[in-house]
């Protein structure tokens, strides 16, 4: 079943809008830093998908475990708001969440963990959910994956375990229609709904970017995962507005334009201009300030256990 939220986006609480804009400007800032040659390695931005972790944010509690992936800045920022620590991690500066060892896609903070190999997190999340189930508190493991991740066999092994063992596992799929450079229709036979159904796992597909409506829709579903200890798959029909990593967007122009047309950032600016403009300016300035501060820090230190 797909629920499509209204085209006109409902007015957001200031804090939610701020977080979405923080993520947006953080990601734009990273692309800019790359262009200037100030970042090492690679990164994957979540431009266009910022609303998903923000919508889920208040549905998760402190003891829940969150598993993120290569495209995880939004997941981290929505949970911790800590742009300094994340940027320092990506830039290898002091104050980095993981001392610069993990970088963009390998972050651990409390019960939040990201890894860089597709599909790898789902069996781990199932193990954590088994631990939580035994603990007795109504806690869950939530794992963000993409549409491309469904090519990995680990996904199915984990779904099977989760259903067999009644594990409180919430699989959040950010289906952005493209896996790096490969369109989903060229890499996925059938549907995610069909695959969830094959395991007897509840599936909910959501189109549209209305954060308030998404939250209202998902609140009872997340509570069921938590209390009835049954896995569920929530699939967001979303759009990747930016490139896979940096300057590597090989999509045809109409596809890029289609993504831009669905960008919540543009839509929300249209729907709530008076709220949007000052908030947008504030977050843009804030991120610029954070970049300035973090870039000036000394390099991060790591006491290598192998040294």
């Amino acid at each position: 079943m797909t629920v499509t939220t209204e085209r006109r986006l409902s007015r957001l609480a200031a804090a939610d809008l701020d977080t979405m804009l923080l993520i947006r400007h953080f990601e734009l800032g990273l692309l800019d830093l790359f262009e200037q040659g100030k970042l090492n390695g690679t990164t994957h931005t979540c431009l266009g998908q910022e609303y998903i972790p923000v919508a889920l944010g208040p549905l998760l509690v402190d003891g829940d475990h969150v598993f993120s992936n290569h495209r995880g800045h939004g997941h981290y920022l929505s949970r911790f708001g800590d742009a300094h620590g994340l940027l320092a991690e990506i830039m290898g500066r002091q104050g980095a969440v993981c001392n610069g060892v993990g970088g963009s896609q390998h972050i651990l903070r409390g019960t939040y963990l990201s890894t860089g190999v597709q599909g790898q997190s789902l069996p781990v999340a199932a193990g954590v959910a088994l631990h939580l189930r035994r603990g007795g508190d109504p806690l869950l493991a939530a794992a963000y994956i993409g549409d491309g991740t469904w090519g990995e066999g680990a996904v199915y092994e984990a779904l099977n375990l989760a259903r067999l063992w009644s594990l409180p596992l919430l699989v959040v799929v950010e289906h952005n229609r493209i896996a790096q450079s490969t369109r989903t229709e060229d890499q996925m036979a059938g549907t995610i709904a069909g695959r969830a159904q094959a395991f007897g796992i509840r599936h909910q597909r959501i189109a549209g970017a209305d954060v308030n409506a998404i939250r209202e829709l998902l609140t009872p579903l997340v509570e069921e995962v938590r209390h009835r200890r049954e896995p569920a798959v929530v699939e967001f029909d979303t759009y990747r507005v930016g490139p896979h990593s940096k300057g590597d967007d090989s999509r045809d122009r109409p596809l890029i334009e289609e993504a831009a047309r669905h960008d919540w950032y543009r839509l929300y600016a249209e729907d709530h201009p008076e709220q949007f403009a000052p908030a947008d300016r504030r977050q843009r300035d804030r991120v610029a300030q954070i970049i300035h501060e973090v870039a000036a820090r000394p390099a991060s230190a790591w006491e290598s256990p192998c040294a």
Partner: peptide, 17 residues
């Protein structure tokens, strides 16, 4: 189930917790 990857992965999750 016959799922060596998931068995070790789930065990890794238990250990992580």
């Amino acid at each position: 189930p016959l799922s060596e990857g998931a068995i070790v992965g789930a065990a890794g999750g238990l250990a992580l917790a």
